[in-house]
């Protein structure tokens, strides 16, 4: 049974989750980012890999799904605080008894769960149009990896939105931040193909461990230690990011209240 003190935060996360999803269904940019763009990426990759084994194509299913997750996180979750500012709702949210990171957590969760649909779209595309068959070698590990992927992406999103709120100039770099993560996190091909000096950058990004865990769950012969490493890194990095995000929120909210930039004039 859920303890009583956890009920209000869970209710808040649930409420933010529900209202975000209800608003997103009307947003064509979001629909493009989480469905159309991953379809284009999946189509191109599947076309290139159609003569390869099915094991190669599974990279595409998971990889294109991950691209949808990252795009959603970077653009939708990243913009969420600035969007609230433009709507004039940020002042209301800050003046609530609820901590703002909790609301953003619920919003990010909605965006990430919604983006999972891109993985389903890619899967349907590969099976229906390219006749590829996939097997998930370790279904239990796949489910755990998927849950931890959601958690690590949601946590990662908590650090992006306050940075964009603090300095909208950084938001101008959003487009430049999209593809490097696709590559560094091995969404579409293994990072072993990249120069060695890029590996440390991959290791500090939670999406890399998420992609590695999901790829391992679909590959025969993956060891338990491999899963343990990926899951452990996801939990560790998410906890670290959560801690930094909390501090960042405090500083950013103090700064915007001090500068008088919480609302648009």
């Amino acid at each position: 049974m859920i303890r009583k003190k956890w009920l209000p935060p869970l209710r808040i996360i649930g409420s933010a989750f529900e209202m975000t999803l209800r608003q997103n269904v009307y947003d064509s940019f979001i629909i493009f980012g989480v469905i159309v763009q991953p379809i284009i990426i999946a189509l191109l990759a599947l076309w290139m890999l159609q003569d390869q084994a099915s094991s190669q194509a599974i990279y595409v299913i998971i990889g294109s799904g991950m691209t949808g997750l990252w795009t959603s996180l970077l653009f939708i979750s990243g913009n969420s605080l600035n969007q609230e500012r433009r709507r004039g709702t940020l002042e209301t949210l800050v003046c609530l008894p609820t901590p703002l990171p909790l609301i953003i957590f619920g919003k990010n969760l909605a965006n990430v769960i919604q983006s999972m649909s891109s993985m389903i779209v890619s899967y349907s595309l590969a099976t229906l149009f390219f006749g590829l068959r996939f097997e998930i070698s370790y279904p239990w590990a796949f489910v755990i990896s998927l849950l931890l992927t959601v958690f690590s992406f949601v946590s990662f999103g908590l650090i992006i939105s306050p940075i964009f709120l603090m300095d909208p100039g950084i938001q101008g770099w959003q487009n430049a931040m999209e593809f490097p993560v696709y590559i560094l996190c091995g969404f579409l091909f293994p990072i072993a193909l990249l120069p060695g000096w890029t590996t440390p950058f991959s290791y500090i990004l939670p999406p890399y461990w998420a992609a590695r865990a999901l790829h391992s769950a679909t590959t025969k012969g993956a060891s338990l230690s491999e899963f343990a490493l990926c899951w452990g890194m996801m939990v560790l990095l998410s906890a670290l990011i959560g801690f930094i995000a909390n501090k960042l929120f405090q500083r950013v909210l103090y700064k915007v209240r001090n500068d008088g930039t919480l609302g648009l004039q």
Binding site: Q23, R87, G88, T89, E91
Partner: peptide
């Protein structure tokens, strides 16, 4: 605060 903003218009 006066004005129309501050609500979720799609809801």
């Amino acid at each position: 605060f006066g004005g129309e903003r501050g609500l979720y218009w799609r809801l």
